[in-house]
Design a protein around this nucleic acid. Structure first.
Length: 217
DNA sequence: ATCCCGAGGG
DNA sequence: CCCTCTGGAT
């Protein structure tokens, strides 16, 4: 057992966890493929209840045909649906992508907004998607991205007692230095995919086990 | 709380 | 056939 154990404050524990995650996943980045803010927004909308890997299989075809907000805004909806079908929830996603692109063209000067309030007005965009776009398209740490991995791992690590992603985000904002907000999310996502899985977490292989109140459960 | 929805593995 | 993957709107 290490000398770092149960006496650490939540904040100290969070920092220790992040330190280890940085060593474990030194090159972790956003796993979605994109080349513009609009493309990142679209890819992130598509990533709802879908792996980034699968999103990356449809975006080349999608962006090959409709590379920007202007073309997506006037695309044939059925064609859009077919291009994103394999990501699931394809009718909602196609409709939201087109409506969001129309708003971007008509109300935001063809630019993806760089403000949380504006992003949240776009259909299909809530805090998770908005935080991803702000962090990776604009380098703005407006909040902590809380997807299903960040939610699950933060809970298991005992860093929040909430179930609502917005409450969890507020807890994480208090625990982490702003400069590390996106580092935290990106690495928890990597760790969630590889080790701390939803069903059968591999606590045996987990480098965070001694810092985790849920280890072995 | 419920609905939206597909791909791939076993 | 069953399980796993992994947000948003109403």
């Amino acid at each position: 057992m290490s000398t770092t154990g149960k006496r650490l404050s939540q904040k100290q524990r969070a920092r220790e966890i992040l330190l280890r995650l940085k060593l474990l996943y030194p090159d972790a980045t956003c796993s979605l493929n994109y080349s513009t803010p609009v493309q990142l927004l679209v890819a992130t909308i598509l990533s709802a209840q879908c792996t980034d890997e699968r999103v990356n299989k449809v975006t080349p075809g999608l962006f090959g045909k409709f590379p920007d907000a202007a073309s997506l805004a006037i695309a044939d909806l059925t064609e859009l649906e077919n291009l994103v079908r394999s990501t699931g929830f394809y009718r909602n996603k196609a409709k939201n992508i087109q409506a969001a692109c129309r708003m971007i063209v008509n109300e935001f000067n063809s630019q993806v907004p760089n403000q949380m309030e504006q992003l949240l007005q776009l259909p299909g965009v809530a805090r998770k998607t908005a935080n991803v776009v702000l962090a990776h398209a604009y380098g703005i740490n407006a909040g902590v991205t809380v997807d299903t991995h960040v939610k699950r791992l933060s809970q298991r690590l005992g860093l929040t007692k909430h179930t609502d992603p917005i409450r969890i985000e507020l807890d994480l904002i208090e625990l982490l230095p702003q400069a590390d907000w996106e580092n935290w999310s990106i690495r928890l996502i990597y760790h969630g995919r590889a080790i701390c899985k939803a069903r059968s977490p591999a606590c045996i292989d987990c480098q965070l086990a001694e810092l985790c109140p849920s280890a072995g459960e």
